[in-house]
């Protein structure tokens, strides 16, 4: 799990934190909730591999990667929304997942967009 370019790109433009402030900075404006979500279905190939892996237990790498990618996409959408509002940070970021139909899931990220000094 290396830091990818997407990670760095996300972090550079918009600061994300999971606490109710940006540590070390002063918040000057609040813009309310921003959120991003994506609905993904499982890939047939990774499903078969996962089925085999399911027998002996342990990590299902295909699924881990799939959900990781989806989460990044959701975060990217959230950041875009925050940018549009003129924010430069999103505080109190939370994640949620809901299964929509069999084999598909919605991955969602939400938080409060703010501007810091």
């Amino acid at each position: 799990m290396e830091l990818t370019s997407v990670d760095l790109w996300l972090n550079k433009r918009i600061e994300l934190t999971s606490v109710d402030c940006v540590p070390g900075k002063k918040i000057v404006a609040h813009f309310g909730i921003v959120q991003g979500s994506t609905v993904r279905a499982r890939h047939m190939g990774s499903d078969i591999a996962a089925g085999l892996k399911n027998m002996i237990g342990g990590e299902l790498k295909g699924y881990t990667k799939l959900l990781e990618d989806s989460r990044k996409e959701a975060m990217e959408r959230m950041c875009r929304q925050a940018e549009m509002l003129g924010a430069n940070a999103v505080i109190n970021v939370r994640f949620a997942t809901a299964s929509i139909t069999q084999g598909a899931a919605e991955i969602m990220a939400y938080g409060t967009a703010v501007r810091t000094e």
Binding site: T17, D20, P23, G24, N54, G57, E59, L67
Partner: peptide, 28 residues
Amino acid sequence: SYKIEEKDNILEARLVYGSVVISVDYFK
């Protein structure tokens, strides 16, 4: 916890996360 003592001493703050998908074996 939320709070950090050294308020003036902070260089930067970033969201980090780690995830894993894990399954139980057939026997269990």
